[in-house]
Design a protein around this nucleic acid. Structure first.
Length: 825
DNA sequence: CGAGGCGCCCAG
DNA sequence: CATCGCTGGGCGCCTCG
């Protein structure tokens, strides 16, 4: 349909008004008019053009209103802002429109590509719209209301919706996407918790100067400070319409089988708990009550936490001797008691709580006492929005009756059910006082507890009944440096893991290893042991579990490598891990979770030590991360420190010159190690080979292709025995043909086919091993046979055929497994 | 009997 | 639409030398 309108329908501004427009407004007006005119010139109008024209007309009205207000001295705080209002808002559209225009803003009636809005105001928005507006500044209506109240333009970020990221949020849920890990971590609360925690612990180690570590004889006041339902409180700040005290609020990603990471106390009133699935939580609510599911706002959480810790470090009420991080939202603060003064703990707690609320808009609770365990139990008692102080000598039955078993640190669901089982489930122990009574009534109960839940934990529970600490817990206070030092480094991905091929698994292992190695380098550590833990779909579990992309019910399987020489080299480590994957029987499509652990971390020796020796070993230098090598080369030259080049013999030299540089260095390094091993074992190896040679004397020269059952046919993936057998045959073959006329062409052809198969199935490390075996073998024979035809054929074969196959799949092959050479075939 | 591997458990 | 089930450490049992 087309709408025809005559000319002159536009409400033109009076000339007198025109002269009062600012330059910008004038130009805009001219542009508007010009556009309308060009539409008029067209013969027909589309519906869209009609609306555009209508919009232009409305804008002229807006401009008139704006000028009027400007003349009356209304501050034009929204100058330069072009705002589009999406959907239903509170306050309503009309009101926002008027407020905006009066204060100098431009109201966008109609959102087209030609008229870009600078801001979009919305109270709520479906996901589809969110994606559409991902590149806009999407704010709540409060941005307008509050800015007018403040008399100035407030930063839109303060009113940004939680979903409004700088970069558009594109869901990456395919684990083969190179960005999957990044995206997953960005959205994983558990990853954030772990990551924040280790960062905080790292900070403690660096800031330890500002601490005053107590002595055992000191008497202490311990403050356990913790935000109330932190994630939920922070999330609610983005939704001013919600009341954190009365509306049930949870923080989660989804709507059904999504974990609730945090729920406020209004939600807990109905029995909702952290960790529940949303669908279950909804079932707890009576009819008519809705659950407010809010998105995570990790950035804001970090910001609030920083303010929190900053107040703990510096405030007007107390100077703590230790500020020990428990997590992003929780800290244990220790004050060494001075006999000269008796601080008013109640006031200190109250003041701290007020100060933190003033700064963060979130409430904390505080438990305070003279022992760790009591400060923790008091914290539980204080929650929410309160503080509680009770010293350990004042613990009585009334207090214990308010302490749940799960309140004791180290006691979780498994321990509780074990204890209840010991008590024959009758009655289920509701609180710690009941446990105490059971123990008092039955002297043998302690013995059975020790046998069931362990010695240490039993003692810890008994101590906590008296409000006293066990030694293990006190380490945090008395030996903080030791306590907070990192002893291992790992990555666990048990969500979204769905692979089809070993190549995909390899690529993912690369990404995980890269992540770990980066952290390793930040820590200036190397690892001396790698553990690979896999989750494999349990045989009876469905292919797709209830939870979207979850791991479901799984069996776990492990394999570890002790490295001999600690390493921080990406290539070496990733190859090792890929090798380990091949050693456990988990087909890629059954894989549901991957965990890689670097344990037994050791310090990277500082360069100072090397400099004092005026030279460094080639190996040492090679172990440096590649990106720092060039810098070090210059630095070393300046200081006239030499890199000890490894000795290579003539044969090795020519072999090495044929291969690309990166690879050459790796192999060179490898040769050094080989040399060492060889020197000690060379006699034994020679003896073995003579023996083997003798046993083969009766075979024909044509060794491999003389029957239908070539040895290469029998290779089964992950069947190591078989690979070893093949290696041993190859060695014998080389050994037997290195003199005289060399290997039979048909054998070579079969051999090459086999290598291609390995290459195609991404088993490059195996090719590497074979090539090293051959290289080694030739090396051993070079003195005796280097002029023989056979030797030279083999040498050609190695350099022209085998090495290129290695390079074909370079991405899986960065370096070699150094110490895994098997001379004992 | 100590060292170390493995697996469970727990916390945020 | 879903959904983002991490990660470091303690403890106890077992095995090995």
């Amino acid at each position: 349909m087309t709408i025809r309108t005559g000319t002159g329908t536009h409400a033109r501004m009076e000339d007198s008004v025109l002269s009062q427009l600012s330059d910008d407004s004038l130009l805009e007006y001219i542009a508007d008019l010009s556009q309308s005119q060009s539409q008029l010139d067209a013969a027909d109008y589309t519906r869209e053009q009609y609306f555009r024209e209508k919009s232009a007309r409305q804008q002229q009205q807006d401009r008139a209103l704006q000028e009027e207000n400007k003349q009356n001295g209304v501050p034009q705080i929204f100058g330069g802002c072009a705002v589009y209002i999406n959907g239903y808002t509170k306050p309503g559209r009309l009101q926002l429109h008027e407020t905006l225009v009066r204060h100098g803003g431009k109201f966008i009636h109609y959102l087209s590509s030609k008229r870009k809005a600078t801001h979009i105001v919305a109270t709520n928005m479906p996901l589809k719209k969110r994606k559409e507006f991902a590149n806009y500044k999407v704010v709540t209506p409060e941005w307008i209301v509050e800015s007018v109240k403040a008399g100035k333009l407030l930063p839109w970020q303060s009113f940004a919706h939680a979903w409004d990221d700088k970069q558009p949020k594109i869901a990456v849920t395919n684990c083969n996407d190179p960005n999957f890990l990044n995206n997953f971590f960005q959205n994983s609360r558990l990853h954030h918790l772990s990551n924040w925690k280790s960062n905080l612990r790292q900070n403690v180690l660096q800031l330890n100067d500002s601490f005053r570590v107590p002595k055992k004889k000191d008497s202490l006041t311990v403050f356990h400070i913790d935000f109330d339902c932190f994630f939920a409180s922070v999330a609610a700040l983005d939704f001013p319409n919600l009341d954190i005290d009365s509306d049930p609020i949870v923080v989660c990603h989804g709507t059904h089988n999504s974990d609730i990471s945090s729920c406020n106390y209004a939600a807990r009133k109905y029995g909702i708990k952290n960790g529940m699935w949303v669908s279950d939580a909804k079932g707890f609510l009576p009819q008519g009550v809705t659950l407010n599911c809010l998105p995570y706002n990790f950035e804001k959480i970090e910001a609030k936490s920083a303010e929190f810790y900053s107040i703990l470090r510096k405030n007007d009420f107390i100077k703590f001797d230790e500020i020990l991080p428990i997590s992003i939202d929780e800290s244990i603060c220790v004050k060494i008691s001075q006999s000269s003064e008796t601080p008013n703990l109640r006031d200190i707690c109250q003041n701290l709580r007020n100060e933190i609320y003033k700064s963060t808009n979130c409430t904390v609770s505080i438990g305070c006492s003279d022992t760790l365990i009591m400060s923790r139990l008091n914290l539980k008692r204080a929650k929410p929005k309160s503080s509680f102080i009770l010293f350990h000598k004042d613990v009585d039955d009334t207090f214990l009756s308010n302490v749940k078993l799960s309140d004791i640190p180290g006691v979780g669901s498994s321990t509780i059910s074990k204890i209840n089982a010991l008590n024959n489930q009758e009655p289920i122990l509701e609180n710690v006082l009941q446990l105490k009574k059971v123990i008092n009534a039955n002297k043998s109960f302690i013995g059975s507890m020790t046998a069931t839940v362990g010695n240490k934990l039993t003692k810890k529970i008994l101590l906590s009944l008296d409000g006293k600490d066990d030694d293990e817990s006190l380490k945090m206070i008395y030996e903080p440096i030791n306590f907070f030092e990192r002893k291992s480094l790992s990555i666990d991905i048990n969500w979204g893991i769905r692979f089809n091929s070993i190549h995909e698994v390899d690529a993912f292992i690369d990404i995980c290893t890269k992540y770990l190695v980066e952290k390793l380098n930040e820590l200036k550590k190397k690892t001396s042991q790698i553990n690979l833990k896999l989750l494999k779909r349990a045989p009876n579990a469905p292919i797709e579990p209830e939870k979207y992309l979850g791991c479901g019910k799984c069996d776990s399987m492990n394999r570890n490598s002790k490295l001999g020489i600690p390493s921080n080299e990406f290539g070496f480590l990733t190859t090792e891990i890929k090798h380990n994957y091949r050693c456990v029987s988990c087909p890629p499509n059954e894989l549901r979770g991957i965990s890689i652990q670097f344990i037994k971390l050791v310090d990277v020796p500082s360069t100072k030590d090397d400099i004092s020796k005026r030279f460094i070993n080639f190996e040492t230098f090679q172990n440096l991360p590649n990106d720092v090598k060039p810098g070090f080369v210059n630095e070393l030259k300046k200081r006239k420190i030499q890199i000890k080049e490894p000795k290579v013999n003539k044969y090795q030299e020519s072999f090495l010159n044929e291969i690309p540089t990166q690879l050459r260095n790796e192999i060179k390094k490898d040769l050094i190690i080989n040399e060492k091993i060889k020197n000690s074992e060379i006699d034994r190896i020679y003896a073995k080979q003579v023996q083997r040679q003798n046993s083969l004397m009766n075979s024909k020269n044509h060794l491999l292709g003389n029957s239908n059952e070539s040895i290469f046919e029998s290779i089964k993936f992950q069947n190591e025995t078989s690979f070893k057998k093949i290696c041993s045959k190859i060695i014998a073959w080389v050994d037997f043909t290195v003199k005289d006329n060399g290997p039979h062409p048909k054998d070579l052809e079969l051999f090459e086919n086999y290598l291609d198969k390995l290459s195609d199935s991404n088993r490059v490390p195996l090719i590497l091993r074979i090539s090293k075996l051959i290289s080694n073998e030739l090396n051993l024979k070079s003195l005796k046979y280097s002029n023989e035809n056979g030797f030279q054929i083999w040498e050609q074969q190695l350099i022209k055929t085998i090495i290129p196959k290695l390079m074909k799949n370079k991405h899986t092959f960065q370096t070699v497994r150094k110490l895994d050479l098997e001379f004992d075939l």
